[in-house]
Design a protein around this nucleic acid. Sequence first.
RNA 1: GCGCCCGUAGCUCAGCCUGGAUUAGAGCAUCAGGGUCCUAACCUGAGGGUCGUAGGUUCAAAUCCUAUCGGGCGCGCCA
Length: 556
Amino acid sequence: MKEIILSVLAKKLGKDPSTFENILEVPQDSSHGDFAFPCFLLARELKKNPVQIAQDLARELNLPKEIERCEAKGPYLNFFINRNSLAEKTLNKILKEKERYGSSTLGRGKTVVIDMSSPNIAKPFGIGHLRSTIIGNAIVNIGKFQGYKLIKINYLGDWGTPFGKIIAAYQEFGDPKKFKENAINHLYEIYVKASQDKSFEEKGRQMFKRLAQGDKKIVAIWKKFRKESLKEFDKIYKLLDVSFDVITGESEYEKYIPAIVEELKEKSLLKEDQGAQIVDLKEHELNVALIQKSDGTTLYTTRDLALAIQRYKKYKFTTLLYEVGSEQKLNFQQLFKILELMGFSWAKDCKHISHGLYLDQDGKKFSTRKGKTFFMEEILQETLDLAKEEINRRGKLSGKELNERALIIARAAIIYGDLKNYREQNAVFDIERFLSFEGDTGPYLLYTYARAKSILQKAKKSKGNKTGPKLTDKEKQLVIHLAKFPEVVATAYSSFAPNLIANYSYQLAQSFNEFYHSHKVLGSPEEASRLQIVRATSQVLKNALSLLGIAALEKM
RNA sequence: GCGCCCGUAGCUCAGCCUGGAUUAGAGCAUCAGGGUCCUAACCUGAGGGUCGUAGGUUCAAAUCCUAUCGGGCGCGCCA
């Protein structure tokens, strides 16, 4: 639609259609038309009054059949599109393309590797990792829909001094019985305890050194911690319905470290400073990056270097994404800069997709070290129970069906609750909001979908393919919204902003619910055309939800 | 101290990249309505905002620029 108007304008004014692409806008008030063209820029160019220009254009433009009319209103030229033509075109496209509606082949032949979720073993699955998991998963879905090949990697934090500390603490006040009951909770408990005792700083370093040197006994304990942690994480991934192509960890890149250190030395990037090896990035305004500690053990940056290089070797990616919290921004800038200094041309294809933090009610960061954190598993479980309660308040359901439906509802609440926010924004973690099923929430979207499906179910054989004689305002609004979906998907991927799809879905659902309340579908004279609208809306809503990682429910 | 991010209704947030038309949008909360009718996890209406503050650019600023105040995060042996 937009293209048509652009080309009409371009033809008349003797310019390229793209000239006006960012100028043409959609008025907030639909009485001002479906598209509006402000004439201010032309005013300067033509040295004429914008009001006059709008009037002239309104008179002189040759309109194709898709445009019903255009009229000048002040300095604006307002276009009213032919509703029937719009509906026909959009609805046919949706019903033809079905679950592919909104997709594209933009990314064909391109491989994108994404590092996401990445929880630390032996620690509770924190809220930051939840964000990384949910946002990363949505970006993957959207990317695939755009034709990219996506590889999801869960890179566990399973190496480094903190784990030395936890092992040391476990040896001192660990309780095998408690460990067996709930490994992560127990390890977390002793970790917090150890963190309050300064002597564990040194003990942890010593212990990590032994681990790194391959001390059999210590390695066995570490392996046990890792295995139990993964088991716990799997529960959460299952709840969220997220899976990975590769699950690996920092420990697996340890073996590449000596070569990296050597390479940095060869390229004269390494400097000794206070007994440690660093890369000085001050001239790039990125401070300095620590590569090797004075005790000879290495740090995350070193392992990240090895990791990136190995990944490029293996996947020859077009883009490498890291979905990690914003507090690590500097680290990634340093990482990418060092890769660039090492001469890797693909360094420019690495990107940190940062997300803001969830803060507590006082606006402070949650810290596992200070024992201040939420246990995601508990919160997810609570959401699940609440979903069951809500279902049973409306009608009896039990067994497998209840569990499955509750799971999808809880998942929708959690995923949508996160994705509706702008990624980079810090947000106050509000448990009430997480557990809410009404208003601007995931369950609202599911409910809308179920309602639409219910109509379609009852309509059965109504096969009419005609669009009605004339769309009402609400119908037109809905159809215009449906037509926008492909553009929203494209922008959501190019700016890695799943919230655009979340916001779109919500607006679509709202628009549909307004339509639902004011238009009778079944049994009305316009039944055939309205059914088409319902069918198309449910399809687009389903597509949008699936991009977010939310399954649609036929019944609710 | 330096760097990055953020300040929009009582609360939680969209909108800002790519500046536009009189009434700056949602949700929650508050108040008032809606079921003999396709699922009321819904819909309709009301109250509530100097878009942190001050300048600047522009015909036009929540949106761009600068300053300032407030909050968050980061800044070598943690990840």
